[in-house]
Amino acid sequence: MNYTLHQLQVFQKVVETGSITKAAEVLHLTQPAVSIQLRNFQDQFDIPLTEVLGRKIHITDFGKEIATLAENIISQVQAIDSRTMAYKGQLSGRLKIAVVSTGKYVMPYFLGEFMKKHPGVELQMDVTNKSKVITSLEKNEIDFALLSILPNGINLDYLDILDNNLYLVGNSDAGDHKNISPDEIFMEMPLIFREKGSGTRQIMEKFIEGSKISIQKKMELTSNEAVKQAVLAGLGFSIMPLIGIKNELASKQLRIISVPGLPITTKWRLVWLKGKKHLPLPTAYLEYLQKEKGLIAERYFGEVRG
């Protein structure tokens, strides 16, 4: 047999994602390139590694065993690279972070300078919904997660990195609502919610319950970007993190509506499993954040911190 490390990496990623298309995206390759590498790898075995049923690729039991071995080999190669870089006094390896969808407006700024200082470091950042972020935490698949609301039932350590301020917002056609009660506002237009399980949804529901507001109509959308577009289109109001709408506020496409009890302030927190033994790379990143988080927040978020 004469398979290459690249073929092992391609096969392992196909198994991990369950899709040639997704594997190609992660590896920054074209689909034909992934298919060719997968076929060349398969040609070296008399036993099928995969089978295609309908339009979906399935991994055989033998293929799953080979994928496990491939993952071990890839990890050992990465360890060799890391050890070599360490002897040169350089950090290397892969930093794995899962981020709730609104956190995409935050996390890159707390990574930029660190990544520039350490060119041997690879970043794997998954921007997804809160439930998937929590699952990744529970399975210990990541080094860190970025959340604004800590989940119940998981022992976590965390580092506060930025205030998360949430306001009621409407589009530019929203009238002046000074001296109008929240009930009157929400009778005019629907309140637009994120999906169940979202941190922003939890904050909205807690505010509504505490304020004893009657909601006449409501809509539910599955991403912060979708909510923002719906508000811009005049479909309703929403309680939204300031961090994700600062450009629309500056251009006067959106406006903050003043109501008692708002804004609500939570914290953007970098979290990890309590007792987790970090490798040198995530340890170095955590030390970097502890030292630099204030300067980063002031530099990039000074105008939206309160």
Rank of each mutant, 00 (worst) to 15 (best):
H177L: 11
Q76K: 14
K130V: 05
K132M: 04
Q76E: 15
K117I: 07
I80F: 15
V77L: 05
K178W: 08
D157R: 14
K96N: 00
S75W: 06
K116L: 01
K96V: 05
I59A: 00
G63A: 08
F62I: 14
K116F: 04
K117S: 11
N140T: 03
D173P: 03
N171C: 02
K132P: 00
F114H: 06
L147M: 15
Y105S: 09
A86W: 10
N129D: 08
N152I: 15
N152R: 14
E138L: 13
K56S: 08
S148D: 00
D126G: 04
K130M: 05
P108M: 04
I57L: 14
S136R: 07
T128G: 08
N140L: 06
E122W: 03
P119M: 02
N179L: 13
N179P: 09
H58Y: 11
Y167A: 01
I57R: 12
D176Y: 03
L159Y: 00
K88R: 12
L123G: 03
I97S: 02
D143G: 12
K130E: 13
Y105T: 05
L123V: 01
I59N: 08
P182H: 07
T135Y: 10
I73D: 01
E184N: 14
L147Q: 11
P119I: 06
T102V: 08
D176I: 01
H177G: 11
I154S: 13
D160Y: 11
I73S: 03
G63W: 01
D61M: 05
P151W: 13
M125T: 02
P151R: 12
M115T: 06
F144H: 05
L91F: 15
I142Q: 08
I80V: 15
F186I: 06
K130I: 06
N164K: 10
A86Q: 14
L150D: 07
I74W: 08
S82P: 10
A67F: 07
I59K: 06
N164A: 14
A174D: 03
F110D: 07
I80C: 14
G89N: 01
L91R: 13
N155Q: 15
G103K: 11
E184V: 12
T128F: 04
L166A: 02
I97M: 05
L162N: 12
I185M: 06
F114T: 10
L162V: 13
E138Y: 14
D163C: 07
T60I: 12
I73N: 04
S101F: 05
R83M: 06
P182C: 05
R94F: 10
K178D: 09
A79Q: 12
F110R: 10
H58P: 03
F62C: 11
S181I: 03
A174I: 01
T68Q: 15
H118P: 00
S131K: 03
K64G: 12
Q124C: 09
N155A: 15
S172D: 13
Y105V: 09
T128Q: 02
I73W: 00
F186G: 04
K96Q: 07
G89W: 06
H177W: 12
D163R: 09
T128L: 05
L166S: 08
M115G: 04
P151G: 13
T102S: 10
